[in-house]
Design a protein around this nucleic acid. Sequence first.
RNA 1: GCUCGUGUGGUGUAGUUCGGUCCAUCAUGACGGACUCUCGAUCCGUCGACCCGGGUUCAAAUCCCGGCACGAGCACCA
Length: 491
Amino acid sequence: METLAPDALERRKHVKIEGLKELPGDHSKVVLRFAPNPNGPLSLGHSRGVVINAEYARIYGGKVVLRFDDTDTKVKPPIPDAYHWITEEYEWIAGRPADVIIRASDRMPTYLKYAKKMIRDGHGYVCRCESDKFRNFRSLKEECPCRNKGCDENLSEWEEMNNGEILEGGAVVRVKTDMSLPNPALRDWPALRIQHNPHPLVGDKYKVWPLLDFQSAIEDHEQGVTHIIRGKDLMDSTRKQTLLYNHFGWEYPFALYWGRVKVHEFGGFSTTSMRDSISSGIHEGWGDLRLPTIKALQRRGFSPNSLKEFWIDLGLTQKDISVPMKTLESFNARIIDSGTERRSFVGEPIEISLVGELPEYEINLPRHPEDSGVGDRCWKLGDRIAIQSSDFESGKLRLKDFADITLSDSRGVIDSIEKSDGRKIIHWLPLDCARNARLITPHGKEIIEIEGLLEDVDLVIGNVYQLERVGFARLESFQEDSTAILIWLHG
RNA sequence: GCUCGUGUGGUGUAGUUCGGUCCAUCAUGACGGACUCUCGAUCCGUCGACCCGGGUUCAAAUCCCGGCACGAGCACCA
């Protein structure tokens, strides 16, 4: 060591530890879970959960359970399409499908079974108090009258709840903890409530539905989850569920937390508010470029690896953070740049006639400046070309990779083919090689569409190109009139 | 009100468990330069931080006490 690298021993002062920290506990059979509500497709915020869980599963050779927490039919009702959207988006982000996929709504018999057992064992009870009345008991650390009912009475009321004899709001099943607990959130917390709304997938078969804390607790145990990674807003859920696990004699998984994330450009990630903005027509749909959805990121051409590197770099901390999209974009740019071919896009074009000795040849430009292996793009030269109106200034310009010209009105006099001085270099396009195009760019609350001309050489729908002097964009489609639709990615 | 959590450069992040090897890591950003027939890439340089106040100690980002700030939970949402 000392002879091979004498100063390696000293120089190793501060090294940043890359990657995720070690998971606590046993690593031999790691089971994690990602549990979204299928009330919409996945957002950029969700992708943190996918990345972190999938990465830990990869590190330890463990599994990830993708679980649809769809037990609310009223406040955040599930969207049937969201189940397959999320399944596919999970796979896209993680680079592999989830190991186990379950829907909470399919597992109702299990939840109801445990609920009944809890009541029978005296660890839970049917509470008929109105919510604000119970709230009052809770704040006073007093027990509500329902708490000391006999087991038989609880059980018969439980049956009434399930039969639909008790209306919504008429009863709730509570986990018996301790009304004198210092943390008010833990005092006899609600486990199941009545919902008569039909569930979009299982209909009106069930009248009693578990709340998140109960459903999630039971299912984590059923699936053998060893590590729960969740937002720190759910810390009290851990404490509530630990109390429930004690009733059942189960051992609670390790829980890890992350703080709230905001992105400067988008703020938070509320599926519900996105849903509202779509139904009210403010946004065009879940793939609207202004929305922080995975669908929008896919349309723009982000690499799933950029999400992975981004979230792993951010790590798993409990700090509430706000990061700029620029950070994600720089990860993405680094990933895609070497494999992204260049093309010319002239926005808001102005036609120019070339005057002078027009060489009778084709111009060969590299598809990638640092990678000759991908070959050239070939332009047939004509005397009609287009330049960007923002570059139009009467005077001396260099048409990139072609010629020095002097511009006056809409005529470009060729001064020389060789680069003769330090004049401004602009991108351009022979009209013969151009196709109409529209570059669509999200800009805050607006969507900006720039009409222009795109170099019409080997265009493949779905590919990302770097538009010279403009930035990265994904070719989304050709319209019927053959106009190319480009979606802006980043600079 | 009660309970819980977090505070390191503009933004993130490493280091905090077991004080010294930290005049504090890395990335991103901003600024400047080199190179390049893209405003991309690459390369070089510069800027910039331990919430505050005490205490313990030879030594504190790290331990203790007290403040302050921010966030969250106390939903018949997830």
